[in-house]
Each structure stands twice: as C-alpha cells, then as structure tokens.
Amino acid sequence: MNVSREEIIHMANLADLNLSEEEIQKYTKDMEDILAFANEINKVNTDNLDESITANERYNILRKDEVKEFEDKDALLQNAPSQKNGMFHIPKMI
C-alpha cells in the first residue's frame, strides 16, 4: 500500500489534529503497513451480502416525549477549562 505524506496531513486536517514532522513520518509508515494488512479483506467474496449497519439490528427503540431535567447543572460546567457566565469560553469566532 502506498500512502503519501500528503494523505496523512490531509487526514490529520480532517480530524483537526496537529502532527509533528516526526509523527507525520512515523504514521505514514504505520499506515502503509496497517493498510496493506487491512486491504486483505478486499480479497473476500462478499457478493450478495449486505453491510452490517448496527451491531445487533434492533428497530424502533424510542423514548416518550416527556421532560426530565438533569438536576446537577453545576456539575455540567465543573470540568470546563475556561468558562464565564455559565458559558464555555472559546477564541473569538467572527
């Protein structure tokens, strides 16, 4: 399997993940090995087979439309690295 360093950079961008130069090189090599191995599945005959969509194919698992408030609202914000007035603080978006 040929994996280019540009592809690894593209994947990291899609995942919004920064990689160091060293990591780019390492993962390019790793992906070549892993994908070569993973590619074996393309030799399997899967004609007439549907994809598995979920693990255990259950249908219509639905919830009633009834309000149940989560009580411990403070706990929802307790882990925020940066918050103000009950909101999560992020860099300016506009």
Partner: peptide, 30 residues
C-alpha cells in the same frame, strides 16, 4: 429529555447527553 423551550439562561436546558459528556448515548424521541 431536556426541554426545547426557546431562550433560558445559558446551558440550563442541558444534561450530560446534549453536552456530549464522555460515555453518554442518544435515545430517539418518538
């Protein structure tokens, strides 16, 4: 099961699920 009311103090119509806390799972409203 959080309310859908418009407005409200920020982050008060919320629970671990709609805040995407680790480990939470969705259940579809019928």
């Amino acid at each position: 099961s959080c309310p859908t009311d418009f407005g409200g103090e920020p982050n008060t119509h919320c629970c671990p699920v709609c805040m995407a806390m680790p480990g939470t799972l969705p259940v579809l409203n019928e």
